[in-house]
Amino acid sequence: MPGQDDLEREFDLKWADDAAHKEPSARARMLAARWKENPPGPVPFRADPDRVASPRSSWLSTALVLGCVAAVILLLGYARFRAQY
């Protein structure tokens, strides 16, 4: 508001922040209306025990990543060795 000084503007901000009723955002209103007609299903906080990766696949993926890193290191070392001669 162009005609207000800082003290009046600060008062307006405090007054707005202290309001007893705060209107929800447009997204919150849209989701509330949508969920009133078709409520969302429950969503688990943790993954299903059936879908958890087995320890074998965990080790396999770790070995694959470490193998790729070792291959890149060897390839860069070989390229540097070839560049010297």
Results as ranks from 00 to 15, higher is better:
residue 38 N to K: 00
residue 25 S to W: 02
residue 54 S to M: 03
residue 61 S to L: 08
residue 19 A to S: 15
residue 65 V to I: 15
residue 5 D to S: 12
residue 16 A to T: 03
residue 75 L to D: 04
residue 56 R to G: 10
residue 70 A to E: 04
residue 74 L to G: 08
residue 76 L to G: 11
residue 8 E to Y: 07
residue 67 G to N: 01
residue 59 W to N: 14
residue 40 P to K: 02
residue 32 A to K: 15
residue 29 R to P: 01
residue 40 P to F: 02
residue 63 A to E: 04
residue 11 F to S: 04
residue 59 W to E: 15
residue 2 P to I: 06
residue 51 R to C: 08
residue 6 D to R: 08
residue 24 P to Q: 12
residue 66 L to R: 05
residue 28 A to E: 15
residue 83 A to D: 08
residue 18 D to L: 11
residue 43 V to E: 05
residue 37 E to H: 10
residue 49 P to C: 06
residue 3 G to Q: 10
residue 10 E to P: 00
residue 32 A to C: 09
residue 67 G to R: 00
residue 3 G to D: 11
residue 57 S to W: 01
residue 41 G to I: 00
residue 57 S to C: 05
residue 73 I to N: 05
residue 34 R to D: 11
residue 58 S to L: 13
residue 2 P to K: 12
residue 56 R to V: 03
residue 56 R to N: 02
residue 39 P to D: 03
residue 2 P to T: 11
residue 80 R to T: 12
residue 37 E to Q: 12
residue 50 D to N: 10
residue 61 S to D: 11
residue 36 K to I: 00
residue 54 S to P: 02
residue 65 V to R: 05
residue 24 P to I: 05
residue 67 G to K: 01
residue 44 P to L: 04
residue 34 R to K: 15
residue 30 M to G: 02
residue 61 S to W: 04
residue 48 D to K: 08
residue 26 A to D: 15
residue 79 A to P: 00
residue 7 L to Q: 13
residue 69 V to T: 03
residue 33 A to E: 15
residue 45 F to C: 04
residue 2 P to Y: 06
residue 73 I to Q: 03
residue 75 L to C: 11
residue 52 V to R: 14
residue 29 R to D: 07
residue 82 R to W: 00
residue 82 R to G: 03
residue 38 N to I: 03
residue 72 V to R: 01
residue 62 T to A: 10
residue 39 P to N: 02
residue 30 M to D: 15
residue 70 A to F: 13
residue 42 P to F: 05
residue 50 D to G: 13
residue 8 E to H: 10
residue 35 W to P: 01
residue 9 R to C: 04
